[in-house]
Design a protein around this nucleic acid. Sequence first.
DNA 1: AAGCCGTGGGC
DNA 2: TGCCCAAGGCT
Length: 304
Amino acid sequence: MTPAKTSPAAVHPLHRPILAWYDMHNRDLPWREPGCPAWHILISEIMLQQTPVSRVLPIWKEWVERWPTPADMAKEPPGEVIRAWGRLGYPRRALRLHACAQAIVDQHGGEVPGDHAELLALPGIGSYTAAAVASFAFGQRHAVLDTNVRRVFARTVTGTEYPPPAVTAAETRLATELLPEEDARAARWAVAVMELGALICTARSPKCVDCPVSAQCAWRLAGSPPHSGPARKGQAWAGTDRQIRGALMAALRGSREPLSHPQLVIQVPDSALREPGQRSRCLSGLIEDGLVEPLPGDHYQLPA
DNA sequence: AAGCCGTGGGC
DNA sequence: TGCCCAAGGCT
């Protein structure tokens, strides 16, 4: 009989050095301050999806002052939130966060739920963000599997330079098995591994000389073999719908008044298009997504 | 379940 | 200079 207390994770050799490193070297980010409200942490997690800390910081500070509670944001028209999102990218995140605020008000009495399943059911909150909020805001024990954590485990445990293209069951199992037993320690572990991936075990040019676990890193011990599998497929950009949509949204964000169709499409010169119907398709898509509101007379604005 | 969805900075 | 990448989610 092996009691849970003596499971391998409880004494895993990665724990102590990574936790000690985090205590010494973690960044002083405002959403990590003790007592930071769950709602503010939730906002940070949404903003940080695919967006670097340096670009999130100033917007996050504005937002927590402007909308300190979910109710404050919920009573705002979605267009205001989309405009305040600015150039953070992927504006659907802003729209979903607004919907998330309304769901928190309508279904949870205005308080961010601490339950993982309830978090997961909210708009814009997926597997990662639900675990992150439950862990960072509520001190619970969850496998927090983001791109940083996946890379750290790929290298230190699996011995590969990069994790698989998509999260695998094996990765989820590994992250779960490596969780320290105690809730508070597991939560600290989660943020510590993320921080190690963000600062030391980076995608390119990892700083192994500064790494607290370089001596036990499977990838390093194997001679740091370069990634062997198929190259990661980079996302195209020039001439894509995303570029067109971005230009249209930028125009709408920049105007307090509705824009006429000519005023809107002049933002996208023909030279930027790869097909004739692309502009109208993108505009229709934005309307379908709820990011743009069409008005009578062929005018458009951010959703009121 | 592979592809789509913005933006800007670092090397 | 381009290319790669950044605390993903949704369909």
